[in-house]
Design a protein around this nucleic acid. Structure first.
Lengths: 139, 139
DNA sequence: CTCACTGCAAACATTTTGCACCGTT
DNA sequence: AACGGTGCAAAATGTTTGCAGTGAG
């Protein structure tokens, strides 16, 4: 693992990376902060932000912006969409077969040299749908 | 044009709507503020934000979040992607043929009831590419 | 030993909100 | 006249930054 040219793998950075990696959801900076603080009670939020930026730049994690007002972080592989539930706020991955195709289509249509894409869906997850259905049925 | 149940089409609201409609790019709240102030020098930024929210809720405009730290507004029709140039910051529309297909695929894969999607590409626009090429060639 | 990194707190940028007055309906 | 909307200024939110001291390499 090479986090960059002259960067030092400090205790804080390592813990931050681990916590993003082990998180099942896609934690926000603040969520990472809360988790990290369980192991390093004196970390500062600034350190968390700085490290998320560094790790993100090093390609060890990815920052995603689903438009809910927070930036989220993701240690998983690239090349997927996200779906966010407007009810419970969870963010899930969706594997994508046709991402390359879409990218090519956009490149052709616009002439842009595409570097990155963000494809995010918003809706209601099956679990929340079920709950609402149950509530509606019961009155 | 019915901006909502009991909302009043005030001078400010009308001008804000017009300025979003006539803007060629996708203006940020602050950009709208600047434009509106040319016609109504005493508007406040708060009023602009409130009206962008109201108009957005009324479906007269759409708010888009391309992840550059500002929310942008768009009076155009729904059902398109956006491409943003990392160099000059412009945001352009891309017409989409296969949006429905993608949405269905996501629905099938996740079980989500999809309400909305945001599909944004980031890259370098042809114009900026050209400039950089020219600079590179000349040394 | 060096200099990237840290904690802290203050600064920032963007958006939201409380309030008293204003103007559309 | 009623009440939704306004300007203003302060607050809230999420993120970044300056600084002096710390610790990884």
């Amino acid at each position: 693992m090479d986090a960059g040219r002259k960067s030092r793998m400090t205790r804080q950075r390592k813990v931050i990376l681990e916590e993003v990696e082990k998180a099942d959801c896609h934690p926000s900076a603040d969520a990472v902060y809360v988790r990290v603080r369980r192991r390093l009670p004196r970390v500062s939020l600034g350190t968390v932000y700085r490290n998320l930026e560094v790790l993100s730049e090093a390609g060890l994690i990815r920052s995603i912006d689903v438009g809910d007002g927070h930036r989220h972080y993701d240690a998983g592989p690239d090349g997927h969409f996200h779906v966010r539930c407007v009810r419970c706020g969870r963010i899930e991955d969706v594997a994508v077969e046709s991402l390359g195709e879409i990218r090519d289509a956009v490149r052709r249509a616009t002439g842009y040299c595409i570097q990155e894409e963000r494809i995010d869906f918003t809706g209601i997850c099956p679990e929340c749908s079920k709950k609402e259905e149950a509530r509606d049925t019961q009155g």
